[in-house]
Simulated scan of single mutants.
Amino acid sequence: MNSDMTSFRYETTKYGVTIEGLLRNDWQAGKKTVHQMRMDKAVTDSAGVPLDWRTPLAEGTELLFHFKDAQSSYKPDENKSVTILFEDEHLIAAKKPAGMATHPDENDKGHTFINAVMAHVVNNGGAYAEHVHRLDKGTEGIILVAKHPIAKALFDRMIEERSITRIYHAEVDGRLKRIRGTLQYPIGRDRHHPTRRRVTPGGQDAVTRFKIIERFDDSTLVEASLETGRTHQIRVHFSHIGHPVKGDILYGGSETEDGTYRLTAKKVQFIHPFTLKQTNIEIH
């Protein structure tokens, strides 16, 4: 893969699949993407020879998919505090440290998580990196990054359909009484604060499931999984029941010595849409 071309290799997993079927049915690539790839003769065999899109292929056939104009605009910015946990042709899973933004805003053109991942991609000859989801600046943990446009579309859809399990560890103030439970409270914007969210009847549905891992003298370590992905969801839900995340001053949490709050995106689990294998990525 050269610096102006995004591409990936794929080995067919069943007999009789066609390129047309892969793109339209298996991966549900958009019509515009499929049309452009057909016009560009963007699918070849391992020797670079364009293939007929309707010819059934043998299991194990190696295909090369090329995206002529697929480049990300993020400026590469190396940062050793961002750790790569998993990588293949389609996806990177990396750990974001607490205190780092997921992506730049209008005032910050670099020094974010995705800039660091972009540096890794560019250093390995690539040109495309787009985050599939995000974490709050103060939350550390795993973020998934797509390495080509079809992966981005597929993983976006998996997030929307809730087929990616995201598991967090949170240390919350006080001693939770329930061993496990479900927090189901709608979340909306707080009219009195520019960034804060709150539980409100007119908000979006939000569901957090949790179980206790360990109780301490004045706090509780919980494992929480999201059925929905609302902004600040775990932070808002636990604050609402009187057990804010430790260190999360915005939502009433007690102060910590280092000024960070105790919330980590610990694990992601999903069926990989290209390999069809159960994939578990975890911070140990």
Rank of each mutant, 00 (worst) to 15 (best):
S239P: 04
S239Q: 01
S239Y: 09
H240K: 13
H240Q: 13
H240M: 10
H240D: 11
H240V: 07
I241W: 02
I241F: 00
I241C: 10
I241V: 13
I241G: 12
G242Y: 05
G242I: 08
G242K: 04
G242H: 00
H243L: 01
H243D: 05
H243T: 05
P244L: 02
P244R: 01
P244K: 08
P244D: 03
V245D: 03
V245F: 06
V245H: 06
K246G: 01
K246S: 09
G247H: 03
G247W: 01
G247C: 02
G247S: 07
G247F: 04
G247A: 04
G247Q: 09
D248V: 06
D248W: 01
D248Y: 00
D248N: 09
D248S: 07
I249F: 08
I249C: 03
I249Y: 06
I249H: 05
I249T: 06
L250K: 13
L250P: 06
L250N: 04
L250Q: 07
L250D: 06
L250F: 07
Y251V: 07
Y251Q: 07
Y251W: 06
Y251S: 07
Y251P: 00
G252E: 05
G252W: 05
G253L: 03
G253R: 12
G253K: 05
G253T: 05
G253S: 07
S254Y: 03
S254N: 14
E255M: 15
E255F: 12
T256E: 02
T256W: 03
T256D: 07
T256K: 10
E257H: 14
E257N: 14
E257T: 14
E257M: 11
E257Q: 14
E257A: 15
D258S: 12
D258Y: 13
D258C: 12
D258H: 13
D258G: 12
G259A: 05
G259F: 02
T260V: 13
T260G: 11
T260R: 13
T260I: 03
T260W: 01
Y261S: 09
Y261V: 03
Y261E: 01
Y261C: 04
R262F: 10
R262L: 13
L263W: 04
L263P: 02
L263H: 06
L263K: 08
L263M: 05
L263N: 01
L263E: 04
T264D: 02
T264N: 07
T264S: 10
T264Q: 08
A265T: 04
A265Y: 01
K267H: 08
K267P: 01
K267L: 09
K267F: 01
V268F: 10
V268L: 12
V268D: 03
V268N: 02
Q269S: 15
Q269Y: 13
F270N: 00
F270W: 05
F270R: 00
I271Y: 10
I271D: 04
I271V: 15
I271A: 12
I271E: 02
H272I: 15
H272T: 14
H272N: 15
H272V: 15
H272A: 15
P273H: 11
P273L: 12
P273M: 13
F274I: 14
F274V: 13
F274K: 10
T275C: 11
T275W: 09
T275H: 11
T275K: 13
L276T: 15
L276H: 13
L276A: 14
L276N: 14
K277L: 12
K277W: 00
K277M: 12
Q278G: 05
Q278S: 13
Q278M: 14
Q278I: 03
Q278K: 15
